[in-house]
Amino acid sequence: MDALKEIVDYGVIGLLLALGLVALGVAIERWRYFQRINPAEFQHRDMLEMALTKHLVIIGTIAANAPYIGLLGTVLGIMLTFHTMGTSGALAVATIMVGLSLALKATAVGLLIAIPCVVMNNVLRRRVSELLTLHQAHYGS
C-alpha cells in the first residue's frame, strides 16, 4: 500500500501538474500565434479556422478531465486510508481525518488545474471568434 500512496502523491498530482504546464504552453503558443496572424492572408474561412483552433482541443480536454483525475487520486487516497486503518486496527479519529484530508488534496489540485484551463480555453476561443469575424468583414463571406 505504500506504493499506492506514492502513486497518489507523485503520480496523480504530478500528472495534473504536468497537464497544467502543457495547457499553459499551448495557451502561450496560441496567443503568440494570434498576435502574428493576418486573417486577410487566408482566402478560405475554413482554413483560417483550422489554423486558429489548432491545439485548442488540448486545453479543453485538460480542463474537462483534470477534476476526474483529481477525483481518482482522492478515491485512491481514501482506499489507502481505509486499508491502513483496517490492517493496523487503529480507529483513532485523528488518523482517519489526516488520511482523508491528504486524500482530498488530489481533488483540490485537479480543480486548481481545471479552472484556469477553462478560463484560458474561453479567452482563446473568444479571440478565434474575433479573428474569424475580421476575416468575414474582409472577404464578406
Score class of each variant (00 low, 15 high):
Ile13Pro: 04
Met1Leu: 02
Met97Pro: 00
Leu111Pro: 09
Ser141Thr: 00
Leu112Trp: 09
His138Pro: 04
His135Ala: 04
Phe34His: 15
Glu41Ser: 05
Asp2Phe: 02
Ala64Lys: 02
Ser129Cys: 07
Ala90Tyr: 12
Trp31Asp: 03
Leu72Ile: 14
Ala63Pro: 00
Tyr139Gly: 01
Leu48Phe: 11
Val57Ile: 15
Val75Asn: 05
Ala3Lys: 10
Leu19Gly: 09
Val98Gln: 07
Gly110Val: 11
Phe34Gln: 14
Gly77Lys: 11
Thr95Gln: 08
Leu17Val: 13
Leu132Ala: 01
Gly70Ile: 05
Val8Lys: 12
Leu56Ile: 14
Ala63Asn: 02
Cys117Asn: 07
Ala3Ser: 13
Lys5Pro: 02
Met47Arg: 15
Gly70Asp: 11
Val57Cys: 07
Ser129Gly: 14
Phe42Trp: 07
Thr107Trp: 00
Ser129Glu: 14
Gly86Ile: 05
His44Phe: 15
His44Arg: 15
Ala114Gly: 07
Ile78Glu: 09
Leu24Trp: 03
Tyr10Val: 12
Leu72Glu: 11
Asp2Pro: 00
Ala63Asp: 01
Leu124Asp: 04
Asn121Val: 00
Lys5Cys: 03
Leu104Glu: 02
Arg36Trp: 02
Trp31Asn: 02
Gly86Pro: 10
Val93Arg: 11
Leu132Thr: 00
His135Gly: 02
Ile115Phe: 01
Leu91Trp: 09
Ala40Asp: 10
Ile37Pro: 11
Leu48Val: 13
Ile58Asp: 03
Met120Gln: 01
Ala64Val: 04
Ile78Cys: 05
Arg127Glu: 04
Pro67Asn: 11
Met85Ser: 13
Phe42Lys: 04
Ala94Lys: 01
Val128Pro: 05
Ile96Gln: 00
Leu91Glu: 13
Gly86Thr: 10
Gly86Ser: 13
Leu56Trp: 14
Cys117Lys: 02
Ala114Gln: 05
Val8Phe: 08
Glu6Arg: 11
Glu130Met: 02
Met47Phe: 15
Ala51Arg: 14
Ile62Ala: 05
Pro39Gly: 08
Gln136Ser: 14
Leu134Cys: 05
Asn122Cys: 02
